[in-house]
Design a protein around this nucleic acid. Structure first.
Length: 308
DNA sequence: TTCCAGGGGTAGA
DNA sequence: TCTACCCATGGA
């Protein structure tokens, strides 16, 4: 496929208290294809297939009070195509979320002033529930490095897009055998779960995109009903869809709480008891602590003399 | 070789 | 609801 040319420059209005870099780097999704992030230019890139089948590459960067979308494609897009790009990226940056109440709550809790000051809390999410489900599955019981590797290989199954691929859709996955899927992606036993999910969607048995508007409890139950999605994965999906009243407890969360509390013997009950004070925002407060813990770790490593 | 990672399913109590 | 055991992959 010949290299795309820039066809359009679109813009999204930034909501109040919005920070592009804090949003994009808010969790690990920016490292999972088809996202690609250039820290030097603070530009997020994504390959996407529009509803009419048109492959595009979109570059997102912040300008004062706006988010600029540079759209690359083989030919100019229709008005509907441009609208779809704007709508998709609006969702990916979670621009609908209002964090006003979250920031007001944190004002009553010492040690969290950096969250509102830095406009943290908004997360980069996927354009579809499907993509977030798949990526969440790829984070379970593995290292982050392997999650990235699995996701990269999985994307090779998607639609060709210039010199890369878009994220695969259920029709790309459903016809495969579990063995072939596992062999091509290195996702091991997760292939059975992903295949079952893709096949149920393809058969019309499951409409996961409708889950985006479900209330939190119904969404949690729906995700838990999928093979391969336990309490951590369901809590993570809730967070990606803007519900924060569950605590996705994983090794990252436990390590963060252990570091910040200075205690060695921390149980899940300790975490639940501590985050109870944040009410419906507890899941996001937990994630802010994960960010803070990681920043502390990075600064300690940076301060450590080389070779130690 | 063993352990473990941004866990989850299943069986059995 | 809780526990024990098993599940695949690859790096340390």
């Amino acid at each position: 496929m010949t290299p795309f040319a820039q066809q359009h420059t679109l813009r999204l209005a930034a909501p109040p208290a919005f920070d592009f870099v804090a949003t994009v780097t808010g969790h690990g999704w920016l490292e999972l294809p088809p996202y690609q992030y250039d820290a030097a230019t603070q530009t997020l890139q994504r390959r996407q297939r529009l509803a009419d089948g048109t492959p595009v590459r979109v570059h997102l960067r912040a300008t004062p009070r706006q988010i600029e979308l540079a759209v690359y494609a083989a030919a100019p897009l229709s008005a509907a195509g441009r609208a779809e790009v704007r709508q998709t990226m609006h969702r990916c940056l979670a621009l609908d979320w209002s964090l006003t109440d979250f920031y007001a709550l944190l004002a009553h809790h010492p040690g969290y002033d950096w969250v509102a000051a830095g406009h943290h809390g908004r997360l980069l999410v996927g354009p579809t529930v499907w993509e977030d489900l798949v990526k969440t599955l790829l984070t379970t019981n593995t290292t982050w490095g392997q999650t990235i590797a699995m996701c990269r290989r999985l994307c090779a199954l998607g639609d060709p897009c210039e010199d890369g691929h878009t994220f695969p859709r259920p029709p790309h996955i459903a016809p495969l055998s579990a063995a072939a899927l596992a062999a091509q992606t290195g996702m091991g036993y997760r292939a059975d779960y992903l295949l079952a999910l893709a096949q149920r969607i393809e058969q019309g048995d499951l409409d996961v995109e409708a889950w985006a508007t479900l209330p939190a409890d119904a969404l949690y139950a729906a995700v838990r009903g999928l093979k391969g999605f336990g309490d951590y994965a369901a809590g993570t999906m809730l967070r990606l869809l803007g519900h924060f009243d569950r605590l996705p407890l994983d090794t990252v969360a436990r390590a963060a709480y252990q570091r910040l509390s200075g205690r060695a013997d921390v149980t899940d009950a300790d975490l639940r008891a501590y985050y109870e004070r944040f009410g419906a925002w507890r899941g996001l407060a937990l994630w802010m602590d994960c960010i803070r813990s990681e920043a502390m770790q990075d600064s300690m490593q940076a301060a450590r003399p080389a070779g130690t």
